[in-house]
Nucleic acid binder design. Structure first.
Lengths: 82, 82
DNA sequence: TCACATTATACGCCGTGGCGTATATTTTAA
DNA sequence: TTAAAATATACGCCACGGCGTATAATGTGA
């Protein structure tokens, strides 16, 4: 399920969802990415000072990627309705 | 044109494209976002230490949003082929 | 070509992220 | 309910981002 993210919090939430769907703990993800469990926690909680490096590394480890696109006028589009 | 980004460099490139398509200079974008022209430059050049806050603020000013999704196996999917 | 606009880079400063380490706090199973 | 697992938070430290300001390097149009 693709996640739209316009804020750091939404970005963190999407990452947390994915991590959980993979059955990983923050600590386990931390090992794979050489990041501290505390750092993963901060990212998932949407700390806006988090570095892009951290987001990129975590997304790679979770098999995620980002699509940059023009904002849709509303929050919902066709696929959300049907 | 949606841009897939798996690295900070790709993210920066997508942002730069969008800024240019809007006919904005880094300085003009900096004014809108209360960021220095140098900061925009760093973001667009894919400095991995850049903060999420910076990316988020710039994307908002450019009318961009991010979609987080599972990585596609290859770079191309159906829509790129047809 | 050449002046002007744009972008990249530099310096000193301050704030904060991520580090190791450790411990609260909360969540989850048994 | 309670022990164990998972997550949030804390402390001191170092590195570096973003700040103002300024300038160098590039691009661009006339």
């Amino acid at each position: 399920m693709d996640q739209i993210a316009r804020t750091a919090k939404q970005l963190g939430a999407a990452i947390r969802r994915r991590r959980r769907s993979l059955g990983l703990s923050q600590a386990a993800l931390g090992e794979r990415t050489h990041l501290r469990q505390a750092t993963i926690s901060a990212l998932e909680n949407g700390e806006p000072g988090t570095q892009l490096r951290t987001m990129i590394d975590v997304m790679a480890a979770l098999g995620l990627e980002v699509v940059v696109r023009e904002r849709t006028k509303s929050g919902a589009d066709i696929e959300d309705i049907f």
